[in-house]
Nucleic acid binder design. Structure first.
Length: 489
RNA sequence: GCCGCCUUAGCUCAGUUGGUUAGAGCGCCAGAUUGUGGCUCUGGAGGUCCUCAGUUCGAACCUGAGAGGUGGUACCA
């Protein structure tokens, strides 16, 4: 007989994809349930759209024939049309709103959550598939719509379990910087973009770093050189003055900003928007310490047209090794008035907020606001003998009928291993229905939690076994009631 | 994308100037204990030393290329 080489695939999830087990899922589902409830309280309705979109609907990351998968996962349908997995929930919403423009009652307020995919290099905490949760208002140009989104974001994060003091929402308006840039004579897009990128790095590089990036450029510790925006000295001073306008209260910040960006038409418009957002937030009861104006908030996305906001974790977070973890923002959003018009040609103002669900879960864990829930196993019915399997299943059915998770051990191991199995699964109890019990019309139930507690005081295995901690034999008819009592503690 | 560092058992890691059969702790399985989870003791399974090529009598160790991971940087819808 000849040896045939059998191909054995290596069992592994693709790079940047991950499996999630019960404990993680429980935490994420809990977050989604609580956030959904809050979003519905604000009058947002649920919407689910397809994972795939036609590539042209996703916007600027159009797959072209040479590099169809740049940034997105794309494939060509049998009618030759390019489809791509959505990379966020905003572009599909814009498509949906455009498609049903005539039928939607506006403003249309919807929330959505689900997986999104990005075909890019994964890193720690950065996956190619992750769950996003969005809430958006389509069809309202009022700054108050932005304010409501901000209030909803604050309420949602708190409902998810982030304590009031753990996160802040930083608010800004694109119009401020646009006005300022126009005034100092920056008009070509490349330079504008470079300024936005520089401003965005204030928290990481500090004023000095930003100053370099606004000017000639900056060389980092590794020696790599980043080209700057090449503003002149006046321009740099103006942008730094703008960045310096961050203050504690909302109205104080506005007053300072007015000094810097006032005088330009767009800047004035941005100030008016922010003022109205501030008024609405105060009315909504959103504390100035939790949602404030921060001129350094940019959000890289080019499609934002007005207000932008970012939710950030406050305080430092350390990992298991005690190393500082840079968490970045846990969510963000803003106003995008041109996205729907891409389809319809009609201006349809929209604003929204989104966050990554597992990232929020990680933030909750890191900030000590939540721990992974312990996933309890079912009540395990020990399988003693082949002949009595029917009895075991009757027990399992009775327990399930009473709403108690239960299973008959279906492995091939002996009793000791079955006890171990129940212990590992963190089962609350084990049901022993051996020949003795069946003959006597009784059932033995072992409270594993009680046993876990009692085991601390016992040293020898003999004593431990002789004591049969937490174990009781009761009439068969009392099985369900007895197990219930154990579960209730 | 660019720069640095790393890759040895399921996990965390040790491994002498390049020298026979590559180790530890934890975890896993079994026994001590024929119907009892913890503790303890005893035993066992588990390795293409990331891959390929080269140098060498001889490579986990040296050289080169590649892959994966990681930190920084760039980009980020």
């Amino acid at each position: 007989m000849s040896e045939i080489e059998v191909f054995r695939p290596e069992p592994r999830a693709p790079r940047g994809f991950q499996d999630r087990r019960a404990a993680d899922l429980a935490l994420e589902r809990d977050i989604l349930a609580k956030v959904s409830r809050v979003y519905e309280l604000f009058g947002f309705e649920a919407l689910d759209t397809s994972a795939f979109e036609y590539a042209d609907a996703l916007g600027k990351f159009l797959p072209d024939s040479e590099r169809p998968n740049e940034g997105v996962f794309a494939l060509q349908d049998d009618d030759e049309q390019w489809m791509a997995l959505r990379y966020d929930l905003t572009a599909p919403l814009a498509r949906f709103a455009a498609q049903h423009a005539g039928l939607l009652t506006k403003p249309f307020r919807r929330y959505a959550y689900g997986p999104v995919w990005r075909n890019e290099k994964p890193g720690p905490g950065r996956f190619r598939e992750f769950i996003q949760c969005d809430a958006d208002t389509v069809g309202s140009a009022r700054p108050e719509a932005d304010a409501e989104i901000i209030a909803l974001a604050v309420a949602g994060l708190e409902a998810a379990g982030l304590p009031k003091t753990a996160a802040v929402l930083k608010i800004n308006n694109r119009k401020l910087l646009n006005g300022l840039l126009k005034r100092i004579g920056v008009d070509h897009d490349g330079q504008k973009l470079a300024v936005l990128r520089a401003v965005d790095k204030l928290d990481r590089l500090g004023v000095e770093g930003v100053k370099l990036l606004l000017g000639a450029g900056r060389r980092d510790e590794s020696g790599a050189f980043t080209k700057g925006a090449e503003l002149n000295a006046n321009g740099i001073d103006a942008v730094l003055a703008y960045l310096g306008a961050g203050a504690t209260g909302r109205s104080a910040t506005l007053a300072k900003l007015a000094d810097v960006v006032g005088g330009s038409e767009e800047g004035e418009a941005g100030l008016r928007d922010l003022d109205r957002i501030g008024t609405a937030l105060t009315g909504l009861g959103v504390d100035e310490a939790r949602a404030f104006f921060d001129p350094s908030v940019v959000r890289g996305l080019e499609y934002y047209t007005g207000a932008v906001f970012e939710a950030e974790l406050v305080g430092e977070v350390r990992d298991a090794h005690g190393d500082l973890v840079r968490f970045g923002s846990i969510g963000g959003g803003g106003r995008y008035d041109d996205l729907v018009a891409r389809f319809t040609g009609e201006v349809t103002p929209a604003t929204g907020f989104s966050f990554g669900v597992s990232r929020l879960a990680a933030a909750l864990k890191a900030s000590g606001s939540a721990t992974l829930p312990k996933v309890r196993g079912p009540v395990v019915v020990i399988a003693f003998s082949e002949a009595d399997m029917g009895h075991y299943f009757t027990v399992a059915a009775e327990l399930r009928q009473a709403g108690i998770p239960a299973e008959v051990y279906l492995g091939g191991s002996g009793m000791k291993a079955q006890m171990k199995y129940a212990d590992r699964r963190l089962s609350p109890a084990v049901v022993l229905l051996g020949g003795d019990e069946i003959a006597a019309g009784t059932v033995t139930i072992k409270d594993l939690d009680l046993g876990r507690a009692l085991s601390e005081g016992v040293e020898s295995n003999e004593a431990w076994r002789a004591a049969r901690p937490g174990q009781a034999t009761v009439p068969r008819a009392e099985l369900v009631a007895f197990v219930k009592r154990i579960l209730e503690g």
